[in-house]
Each structure stands twice: as C-alpha cells, then as structure tokens.
Design a protein around this nucleic acid. Structure first.
Lengths: 244, 244
DNA sequence: GACGTGTAATTTGCATGCAAAATGGACGCG
DNA sequence: CGCGTCCATTTTGCATGCAAATTACACGTC
C-alpha cells in the first residue's frame, strides 16, 4: 500500500503492518479499547510512531478513533457486513468484466486449477481448504483485471470482512449452491462473457451475505454502545483491553 | 470519514481536511515535494499533528510518502486515471443496481430535476454548470444505494480524479453522447432496471476515460522520475514546493 | 565543462515532556 | 439503593529536542 520499495520499514510502517494483521485476525477483540500505552509496550516504541500507525489504520477502517478518548477496534455490524459485501460485489463484478478482456492464458490456467482443487475439497467436505482455494480464486480474478488500484481497494475491503467471509460455517445446501455458482463463474470466464461473469459474481456475493446473516454472524453488542456488557461472542476471554 | 460527530476538530483532523481540499483542488501542484516544515508554517502547527495528517492523506492516495525523504503530492498518471475510473465504474454500477431497489420517490424526483437542469445546461452549452449537475446526479445515485461504505469509497476515489473528470473540456460530439447516455441512465432508473443501469454506467465511464485520454490530460512528467524537468502543465508557475 | 567526493546544512523519524480532557472513584444527598 | 458532584489519576493531543538520513554545495580531478 505504501509507495516504498525498500524492505526495512520504519517503526510506524512496521506497526501498521503488524497491528493490521492482528486486527484482521481478531487477535484483539472487536470493540475493545486499545490505549496507546498498551500498544506502546506491546511494540516497544514511543507514542509518536504508534499514533501515526493508528491514524492509518483508522483511515483503513480497522480502528475507530474517538476524539480525546483513544482508539478501539472497529466492530463489524450486520449493516457493515452487508455494505462491505455490496462494495465487494461491485468491485468483483467490474474485475470480472475486465478480467474477461485481459486475463492471460497462464492466469486463466491457474484459476482453472484452483477451481478444480476447490471442487475436490468440496467433494471431501474440507471447508477450510475449500475456503482457501475459494479466496485464491476470487483474488486471482481481481488480479487478472490488470488494475492495481482495484486490487488494492479489493484487498482493503476484504481485510475487514475476511473472518466473516472465509470462516463462516456453511450448511451443505448453501455450499452446494456456492459450488454451482463457481461453476458458472468459471464458465463465464472461459467464454470471456464479462457481463455474465459480473452478474454471477454479484449474485454470488449477495447469497454469501444472506448465508452469513442466517448463520447469525455479528460482532456488535447491543445496538447502544452503553457500558452494559455481555460476554463477547467467539472470544476466548472477556478482556476489554489488549494484554499488558 | 472520521467516526466523530463533534464540530470542533483536533489539529490533525483540521489539517487533514484543509490539506485534502488543497490537494483535490490542485492548489499544490501534483508532483511537488511538500516539506513538513513548510506545511507547519502554513497551518501554524507543530510537526506531530502534521505528520499524522500526512499519514492519513497518504492512505487516501493524495500524497506519496518517501521513506526519510518526506512527502510529495501524488500525480495522476494516465494509468492511474484509467484504473480509478474503472473502480469508479464498478462502484457506480453496483450503486445503480442497488439504487433501483432502494431509491425513494423523493430522491428519484430530485435526480430527475437535476437531470432536467443538466439537459438545459447542455442545450445552452454551459459546461461548468453541466458538470456541476452531472456530478450531483452521479453522487445522488450513489447515495440512493443506501450504502454508507459504498458512498465513502466512491467519494474517496472521486476525490482523486475530480479535476480530470469534472474540469476536462468536451468536444460537442462527446458531450452529446454523454447527454444521450444520461437519458438512458434516467430511463433505466425510472424503470428500476438495475442491470441495465449498471451496464450504461459502466459504458458511460469507459467513454469518459477515452474522452479525457483523447483530450490529453496528464499530470505526469516524463515516465522516468529523473530530475529532468519541464514546465508543469496547467500550473500558474513552476514552483516545486509549497509557498513558504 | 562534466563528474565524483567530502562536508555542512537541512529534513526526517522518533522519544520525551507538558497541558487539557476524560476516566474512575470516594463522598454526600435524596 | 440510586444518583449527582468533586477530585485524583490516567490518557490523549500537541510541542519540542535529538540522532540518523538525506540533500545541497564547494572543491578537486579528469
């Protein structure tokens, strides 16, 4: 995302990368307050580069900055998830359209191979590996569009919804449907049917949202942000702050 | 973009807003180096909040940060323009699709009014006012999609291409075509033809790119970033740095 | 004059210090 | 017991200072 090609990063860049990974992976629970002091200790740096890193992560939507009240890990509400999946659908749709014009034979062959592998994981009911191939396919299509800005935005959006999208359990019926949709995706791509591919991708993601919604994914507590607290779902412990 | 509702901003927020506006409007020439010192004087603040602001603007793509070498105003290359217009097309397409499902009667009426006004400006060959309506229409469609994340990303992408998109001269033939496309856009929206609207919007922006390209818009100097310098196109003077 | 070299001045990256705002209780009142 | 107030503590926002990296430039060589 930066414009630097160098390998050795500055402190704030390092922290942006590491903290972003932690936030994406959910190491720090969504909604948790993250006092600068704690993060300074965690990364062993002073507040100056840390604050710079937080500003960047806030711009990316990973944390929320509350004036004079510090940062907290952004929560993915049901509404956020819908909105981001809709954005994702728009990006994948245009990517598919462009990919049909620009995909190289090598890239197409790789996508076909990934698709075959994914189908195998579907048949053997290996959801984690299925998701891994699935994600690689979607990302490969976006890369095949030959548009760096599009790819960067796609990655940024997906980072926010990654766990919801690629960790959610899928009932067999949905899984079968998703697999059939992917057959259609491959078909359209091979036939270079941009409009068709865009259409399928949009519907594919629409179904994905409905499925996650039905599975009851939600990082948000009660609508009000009052201190009334419940146990954090999907969280090993109820800590509110990063370990110090 | 921030999560704060308050009116009084902190220094770095204030600077982000003001500097962003300057960058979008091209007050500081693209490609210009912007030493922190100068900006500190300009805004009468210390380097700490200024640097935080620069990090945010870099994340938004308005400036480039060069490790140990400060910031410079991002330049919009022809490739950047193509990529961002393609992203924009994807976002507008999905927005159109969603808007067809969700647009309120009031919002639709406003868009129709804007369209009528724009058509009048087209007839009277008033390009600035035409562009003003044009932009409001596109933004209104995006707003009508009922998706805040989509709207925010749309605004961010458009900020980077605003001058190219809404200041470029248009030969009559292109202008007439654009106007006809807008008739189609209105038509599809009124008929709630999401797929059709998405299709027209994508083609509309594709044509827009071709048109700007033909007009020879480019903020980039010679491909190499060597110190060989020419006069900065579209710039009142050849300054390399912000006024001090 | 073109071009490399060494050094001074500038600029960046980061740590630290201080004032203002927010937080957390202790206390008093209804 | 619930609830508002006041004050000590913590936390944030910003300015400043210092070391490292970069830049500018004078000088010497070809």
């Amino acid at each position: 995302m930066g414009t630097n090609t160098d390998a050795t990063a500055t402190l704030h860049e390092e922290v942006v990368a590491r903290l972003r990974e932690m936030l994406i992976e959910g190491v720090i629970p969504p909604g948790a307050r993250i006092p600068e002091r704690d993060l300074c200790r965690l990364f062993a740096i002073s507040r100056t580069p840390l604050r710079e890193a937080l500003k960047v992560l806030a711009a990316e939507g990973h944390v929320e900055l509350l004036r004079n009240r510090g940062a907290r890990v952004a929560r993915l509400t049901s509404r956020d998830l819908r909105e981001l999946l809709e954005v994702c659908a728009g990006l994948e749709a245009i990517a598919g359209e462009l990919a049909c014009q620009r995909v190289s034979d090598a890239a197409l062959a790789r996508i076909e191979a990934l698709h075959a592998e994914m189908a195998a994981h579907h048949r053997s009911h290996d959801l984690p590996r299925y998701y891994q191939c699935n994600r690689q396919i979607h990302e490969a299509i976006v890369r095949a569009a030959g548009n760096a800005a599009l790819a960067a935005m796609y990655d940024a959006v997906n980072a926010r919804i990654r766990r919801a999208r690629y960790l959610a359990p899928m009932p067999p019926a949905h899984w079968d449907l998703a697999m059939r949709e992917h057959e259609g995706i491959m078909n359209a791509l091979v036939r270079r049917d941009g409009a068709g591919l865009a259409h399928i991708l949009r519907r594919h993601l629409d179904n994905k949202f409905k499925e996650i919604e039905l599975a009851g994914f939600a990082e948000s507590e009660a609508a009000a942000s009052s201190p009334a607290r419940r146990t954090e779902p999907g969280q090993a412990n109820g800590r509110r702050h990063v370990a110090r």
